[in-house]
Design a protein around this nucleic acid. Sequence first.
RNA 1: GGAGAGGUGGCCGAGCUGGCUGAAGGCGCUCGCCUGCUAAGCGAGUGUACGGGGAAACUUGUACCGAGGGUUCGAAUCCCUCCCUCUCCGCCA
Length: 424
Amino acid sequence: MLDVKFLRDNLEQVEQRLATRGSVISLDEFRDLDRKRRELLGEADNLKAEKNRVSALIGKTKDKSQVKDEIMRMKEVSVQIKDLDEQLRETSDALQQILMVFPNLPHEQCPIGTSEDDNVEIRQWGTIPEYSYEPKAHWDIGEALDILDFERAGKLTGSRFTLYKGAGARLERALINFMLDLHTEQHKYVEMLPPFMVNRASMTGTGQLPKFEDDLFHVEGPDYFLIPTAEVPVTNIHRDEILGAEQLPLCYTAHTPCFRKEAGSHGRDTRGLIRQHQFNKVELVKFVVPQDSDQELDTLLGHAEKVLQLLELPYRVVDLCSADIGFSAARTFDIEVWLPGQSVYREISSCSNFRDFQARRAAIRYRREEGAKPEFVHTINGSGLAVGRTLLAVLENYQQENGSVIVPEVLRPYMGGLERITGK
RNA sequence: GGAGAGGUGGCCGAGCUGGCUGAAGGCGCUCGCCUGCUAAGCGAGUGUACGGGGAAACUUGUACCGAGGGUUCGAAUCCCUCCCUCUCCGCCA
């Protein structure tokens, strides 16, 4: 959520900056509702002050017959207050509703653009290997080795689900453990294992709701949603809390499955592991003081990159332009891994600085020092990494001409020493 | 699923025969005093949000005692609904 006071004082500037995201958002309705709310608030508060004053007087008067008129008058006032409060509630709700669908302001350094074509590649790592044969796509590799079974997953559930088998299941588990160990032991994140379903308040806190309900799986019964990313439960850990500056930065990592409807992508990436309704992800989340957030995003990005470096998978880092960053983000760097099966870079991590956007929605604050006024923290998060996509990148990059797949060295301790996946 | 207890400020904990209670008391914390140091002691202060005034320090109004509604001139205190926590029983990975 944007800062109401800042909005009020900088309407045009905000309108212009939001426009760089690609869709025109008018702030006229905000301005009118905000004005109306303050008028109603003033009226209601004055009446309440009057009521409080007179009621205290009535309380002090022992002989109530002396204050009969006041009691009658306050009866009237109470009705007026009730009416004003109702109008106030409606106005506040309407205001809140539009505030909740305003996206974050792009960071000053976020490249301005109109589509993903304007994203800026900022570095490449590793060398793209040459092949003396036609490299295969991971779905072919996985099925040939009998470690991925898309057909039976379709039987069990439906499309966009995968059954991992044997060394495939083991490889997924190895990747999860490898990533968690790296982030906890080397990068000093605290491991969390949160609930995989959250309530509406949590989804609103990080920005998935109210705007993107269609992308979420909702459970029957209680008003809970399956998490689309660990970002949601992990960021909401500190919802409605005031932290001490000495606690920051707080760095958490969590492995969770992620559930997404992928409603807007029918027919896209239908084959293989790229776009699934359920996938594993290891997430990195930081709560930081505002002045450090740019730098903290850089280090978090480095932590995510480290996973690919240790796995020796070629990748590039892309600075997303204003039209391509997500709703809650002010700045986002994507990491894209090289996939030889399709000769493309594919997103495998997205690292964002949300500044105070989520913190304001979720009321996550801190004090600079004892006794200081609470201020909003900045939140940062990124995938470290999407596990399914990492597995497919391993399959495609480590494939051999004979159809087998070499196990990356750093994963071998997690695979019982296995050096090569060879089918039966 | 059944029975009971409870949710108050950073924490503990009063209040709950309605009014002077943003809320006693204690702990913690901050500042000052005192003391050779520490400890103890003394004094003052110590919530959040929103609105008005002010350049600011600050000041003023309103709201908040799990959430929402009701009764009343007036509710932390009475009534209703919901949520959560704890204890016991049942069931279960």
